[in-house]
Design a protein around this nucleic acid. Structure first.
Lengths: 352, 352
DNA sequence: CCTACTTTCGGGTACGTACCCGAATAAGTT
DNA sequence: AACTTATTCGGGTACGTACCCGAAAGTAGG
């Protein structure tokens, strides 16, 4: 079994144009040193042959190493979520390593703007060939973006987006629609004219995300001539005692709450709370495929989890840069992740 | 930016073992012509260095061409479903083409056992290096499997499985659980003690699949001390008039049906029927992300679609063979697809 | 017309692996 | 011991592209 003779390829182009391989190569990489006349002739032949460079040979021959800078939140007890994107990033990293891609990951603290700035500087100082970041802090992220733009470094946002930037692409959820779906799921479990509670647990940060989700959530009710009452509570401390005390207060004031929608992955805390209070009649919906959440899903304390494939976000983010730098195929500007619905009955087959 | 000097690689191994590159190569591909002593020495060094061959160089240098034989149902008005796996297969095919993989697709008629046999023979006569098939016909598929086994050709099942075969892997849904999920979704929309209808529309074939789904569906109700009545109907003709007449009859006999569960992708026909009858109070659930189904989902005639990522099934099926033949990484024996839930509110982000 | 410099181009080697061919050595035979 | 045959091994080229280096051709200034 032999490979079919390669009819296209630099060699063939060179033959047809009566020039050397080196000259063809110059045209392909539009380097200098080719007269306009030959350049045109060669370009035309390339066009005709619909030449596709052999990526294998190309990467093998090239001594160039591409460096990718990744800027994401570090994983802590409070940010378990970021385990998944990290895993995806690492998977992509090993995959493209043999193609000469080096990946450097910089972790920042989600509770500390300065750490973001610091890590960003560290990253950019290395002048990477591509950047992937989670734009958790609006202003600071825009600054990173503008520096990248200046240095002609393509950059990709994951998990949350900043519209209007010239990023290579965004890979993450459509938060508004996601909240919308959450509301829809809620309505399956509650009666008319009932009271629902929206819970946001986070340390003031990243409530940019939160706002869009809640907006979508509320939009569903207003789109469907709602007869429900929406109560909301913000919990700024992420430790369990704080959460418990806040929730106790709310549930005491509103004894008739039928359902709770938690806007991020900390649903399990709320679930723990409900469990301890032996509240079995409250429907609970939240976000993300975390171990703690799945545990409560299995027990039935949580009814639905919404998930946006965080691991795939990380993976695709890296691969988008890879594609771009190799120029293999164009990159979609906005890659919205599916809004996946996870229940007790289908969680075991879910791929994060 | 230069690539870091390659510390591992055949050259380094050869240097350390005091042999030539050719000899190292012989050991790596366990070819003959190496004395046991040198073979062991080299093996040990390979172990120590944790040598990973450079796939790029390997594929480039190899003149070998791998052929993959694909055996799946052809796409027709009745089997639109198979568009998706086909698309995935083609995507994978173009991706691995530059690595020297040729893909040949053989289509058979889902209503014609003989066409399956015929296409299978055509495929196997070419002695492909790997086989991907949808084992739609039990006996005939087992025969294909045994021939492959004999010829030492790895083979992969997609969409439905035949347990106990020595296939490289299975890629597809867990049908029982899928039916289970369907039942769960139904219960969100119906009242207690109501009557539900299970509809199976297919020409006698592939009811192997159907049985598992219905089993799961029923299991949910019995697991949850059901108070529901389940009516079922088999429709052996897939044209609309036949479906309409069957359904008319059923709905006339059972006027109090609250929900319908269709066991495959032909839900849209049922939806059309309900629409024409102006039945807006019946909950409808079915399978697959087809254009016709989405249309009815948007209109609200269908409440839920369950989907198992058919396109990804095709893609992954091919890639499993690719991985195996290149020996890059081991292949999971059973790759169950997620059981995805699609509603009006999240369909636009779904990736098939 | 000669020298100095710029532009345009081709030869050739390298990337890491696959594999052919023939040489050297070992084993067996008369 | 001489010769045949089998076994073991190394040299070297090829895969398709990248890129270095130096040669040839063209341009300008005197």
């Amino acid at each position: 079994m032999k490979k079919s003779l390669n009819e296209s390829g630099v060699k063939e182009i060179a033959r047809r144009a009566n020039v050397s391989i080196a000259t063809v190569d110059r045209v392909i990489h539009n380097r200098t040193g080719v007269s306009l006349k030959t350049r045109n002739k060669i370009s035309k032949i390339i066009e005709e042959l619909n030449y596709q460079p052999n990526l294998l040979a190309s990467r093998l021959a090239s001594r160039k190493v591409f460096t990718l800078g990744i800027l994401i939140p570090g994983v802590s007890a409070e940010t378990v979520f970021w385990e998944a994107p990290l895993k995806g990033i690492q998977r992509a990293a090993t995959e493209i390593k043999q193609y000469g891609f080096m990946t450097e990951i910089y972790f920042f603290d989600l509770n500390d703007k300065d750490s973001f700035k610091k890590q960003a500087t560290l990253m950019l100082d290395k002048q990477p060939n591509g950047v992937l970041l989670s734009p958790s802090f609006l202003e600071e992220s825009i600054e990173v973006a503008s520096i990248c733009k200046q240095l002609a470094i393509p950059y990709v946002f994951i998990d949350s987006n900043i519209p209007g930037q010239e990023n290579l692409c965004y890979i993450g959820p459509h938060l508004f629609k996601s909240g919308y779906v959450g509301a829809k799921l809620l309505t399956y479990a509650i009666s008319n004219q009932s009271k629902v509670l929206v819970v946001n647990i986070s340390k003031e940060i990243d409530n940019y995300n939160y706002l869009q989700i809640e907006e979508g959530f509320r939009a569903y009710f207003s789109d469907h001539s709602h007869t429900h009452t929406i109560v909301r509570v913000d919990i700024r401390q992420t430790d369990y005692p704080s959460i418990a005390s806040s929730l106790t207060q709310v549930l005491n004031t509103h004894a008739d709450i039928e359902a709770i929608f938690v806007t991020n992955s900390r649903v399990f805390s709320v679930a723990n709370f409900l469990e301890s209070r032996k509240e079995t009649n409250i429907t609970l919906i939240g976000y993300d495929f975390l171990e703690d959440n799945i545990e409560q899903l299995k027990k039935g304390t949580i009814q639905f989890l919404i998930c946006h494939k965080p691991e795939e976000q990380g993976y695709r983010g890296v691969m988008a840069l890879y594609q771009r730098l190799l120029g293999a195929s164009p990159v979609e500007k906005e890659y919205y992740m599916p809004i996946d619905i996870i229940m007790k009955e289908n969680y075991e087959f879910y791929r994060n």
